[in-house]
Amino acid sequence: MYSVRQWSVKRSRFLEGVYNFTNPGILFCLRGITRLFGKSLDRPITALEAGLKGFLFDCQMCGDCVLSKTGMSCPMNCPKTIRNGPCGGVRENGMCEVKPEMRCVWVAAWDGASRMKDGEVIREAQFALDYRQKGKSSWLRLARETGDVEKTDAPETELSERGPA
């Protein structure tokens, strides 16, 4: 929801704290779950992630979450889905050129990042999405990638600098 999304950006510092505090625990639990149950619980976990992040950030489930690097403003809400914004068309009042009723996602992102402890990571360039990940859970991907280090079944290309969800 738009108003909740704006609330989240305003409280980016608080949400960053919550994220940093809960992330290791969540990943630990998910690693355990995926080891025990394999892929059988993927759907409910993905639905939970979509519900929670959808409510807070209007998450579009791109499968490669960068919220913590973009001031808690989801770049996939940009009509051009720009991962390194903003574009040059932002209106003088900071609203989107395509949707004049929406605050530019990247104006919000730089604003949110300015309040975050590690907001500087917004300066890192993100490479374009792997479209195959769309609709999949970023949490599960992270849990599997970090859990299976010895197997290294997730080849890291030098272009996709994947970070925490």
Binding site: K80, T81, C87, A128
Partner: peptide, 9 residues
Amino acid sequence: PVFDLDSVS
């Protein structure tokens, strides 16, 4: 609209 890449990518 396509927007598969963005300008930086």
